[in-house]
Computed example of a mutant assay.
Amino acid sequence: MKEENPEQLNIPIWAYEAIEIEDANVQWKAQGLRETRELSDLLSKFDIKGAEHIGSTAVPGLPAKPIIDVMIRIESFDMMNATVDTLTAYGWHYVPPELDGKPWRRFFVKVKNDKRVAHLHLMKGTEKRWEEQIEFRDKLRESPLLAKEYGLLKKQLATEFREDREKYTEAKAEFINRALNS
């Protein structure tokens, strides 16, 4: 049986890009603020309840994939069709939950030159992961030692799982859970 090439299936290149961890970039904070503000303005008509720059690019000094992660709290997913239409008009790509594999969020990717530059995680206000994301980010910001340990782990896992984002993410879970429970 012939193996299908992602391009033959009309799957975008960015959906399978390799994991690359870069040294911390002082520009990430400003980029995160800019994306957060732009998305807040763009989605304000949907009665959003909060927006946060999360992930490793939100932690000064932490190596990361050069992708800005923004998390926005919404009341429900009832307006998703209109939200998708709005974001698509501004260059965001919607990854439906059945492809994303995370039914608790709605996920969007911003792409430039066939590479991811930003992720948007829309979550309901009742979602416990909202608080966990903020708590983990803040613990890394408060503890340079914890951030250094996480940075080393990320580099190791990026080498080990360079072509598999799901396994890379899964392999970080133990560290994240340990940090959240400490």
Rank of each mutant, 00 (worst) to 15 (best):
D78F: 09
W28F: 06
E98I: 12
K49H: 06
P103Y: 11
M71S: 08
D100E: 12
A18M: 09
V109C: 13
S76H: 10
T36S: 14
S76F: 09
Q27P: 00
H53W: 03
T57I: 00
S76Q: 06
G50S: 03
E17V: 04
N25Y: 00
V70R: 05
I48Y: 06
G50D: 04
E35M: 13
W92I: 04
E22R: 15
P60Q: 04
E35G: 11
S56E: 03
W92M: 08
K102L: 06
E75K: 01
L42A: 00
E22S: 13
D23S: 14
Y16T: 15
I68P: 01
E38A: 14
G101Y: 07
K110W: 10
Y94R: 06
R106A: 08
V84S: 01
I48W: 06
G50N: 07
E35I: 07
R37S: 12
K49S: 04
K115F: 13
G50W: 07
V26R: 07
L43K: 00
M80T: 05
S44T: 04
Y94I: 09
D114E: 15
F107K: 07
A18N: 13
P103F: 10
D78H: 11
W92H: 04
G91P: 10
K112V: 12
A64S: 09
V111N: 10
I67E: 07
L62K: 01
N81T: 14
E17Q: 15
D69W: 07
I72N: 05
Y16N: 14
N113G: 11
M71Q: 10
N113P: 07
F107C: 09
P103G: 13
R105A: 08
D41P: 00
I68K: 02
K29N: 07
A82M: 11
P103Q: 12
V26D: 14
D100P: 02
